[in-house]
Amino acid sequence: MQRTVTVASRVGLHARPAAVFVKAASAASLPVTIAKEGKEPVNARSILAVLGLDVRGGEDVVLEADGDGAEGILDKLADLLTEDLEG
C-alpha cells in the first residue's frame, strides 16, 4: 500500500525533521519505505537513508507499507510529513 505526501517542512527532511520521521517509522509495527517519486525506495527506519534522499520542502514522497495495520501506519507518517516539523 502506498501513500504520496507533500513534505511541508520548508527546509525539507533535513536532520531534525528526518529524525522525528525516522523515530515514528521505527516505532511502527511494519517496515516502511520512503521514496522520491519515481526513485528507488529506501528504509524509512534509517536516518542515513532518509537524509540521503535529500527531500526538499514542497516535494512529494511516496510512503509504502504492506500488511495488517499498514493503512494506519501510513496515515500517521503522512500526517507527520504534512506538519511543519520545524515548528
Binding site: A15, R16, A18, A19, V20, K23, I47
Partner: peptide, 11 residues
C-alpha cells in the same frame, strides 16, 4: 541547545 539533538533523536 536543540531538543532533537540533545535527546539523541538524530543519533
Amino acid at each position: 541547545p536543540d531538543a532533537v539533538f540533545a535527546q539523541n533523536m538524530v543519533g
